[in-house]
């Protein structure tokens, strides 16, 4: 494996240190962090960066056309676009409750997709 450099901005505190990581056969070298937490963060970001995905899916008969959703756990960053492709095919029907599971183990990430608000059904007669 050849040597690779990557600069990572630590987001754990307002200092926002620019941490340089150098990945070599023998291991990872980290420099530029002003505290120990930064080292762990940089290594995590280098090897295993994860993010919570938040998005919307279509909802039928809801007071709004879209239902906001999220993954209940952070997922691998590389899986985000695959998850989004899965979402575009989904459609649920109102009413839904906040926290309801919409899709289990989305794109094999081990994380479930849950709704993040209540969505009432639209009433037949439009009330103001």
């Amino acid at each position: 494996m050849k040597k690779t450099h990557k600069s990572i901005t630590c987001i754990l505190c307002p200092l926002g240190c620019k941490i340089m990581t150098i990945r070599k056969k023998t291991g990872i070298r980290v420099s530029g962090q002003k505290c120990a937490k930064g080292k762990d963060y940089a290594i995590q970001e280098l090897l295993n960066p994860t993010r919570v995905l938040t998005a919307t899916i279509k909802i039928k008969e809801g007071v709004l056309p879209l239902l906001p959703v999220r993954t209940n756990l952070p997922i691998l960053k590389d899986k985000i676009f695959e998850c989004i492709r899965n979402l575009s095919r989904l459609e649920v029907k109102a009413p839904t409750k906040m926290g309801e599971t919409i899709l289990k183990n989305i794109a094999d990430t081990g994380s479930d997709l849950i709704s993040t608000r209540d969505m009432e059904r639209v009433q037949c007669k439009q009330i103001m």
Partner: peptide, 25 residues
């Protein structure tokens, strides 16, 4: 908040990483 569907709300108040709609709800 209902339109702020991303997370990052409530880290100080609830010590949880919530989305806007969740914080509002």
């Amino acid at each position: 908040l209902p339109q702020c569907i991303h997370n990052g709300f409530g880290l100080l108040y609830f010590k949880e990483d919530l989305t806007g709609p969740e914080y509002a709800t």
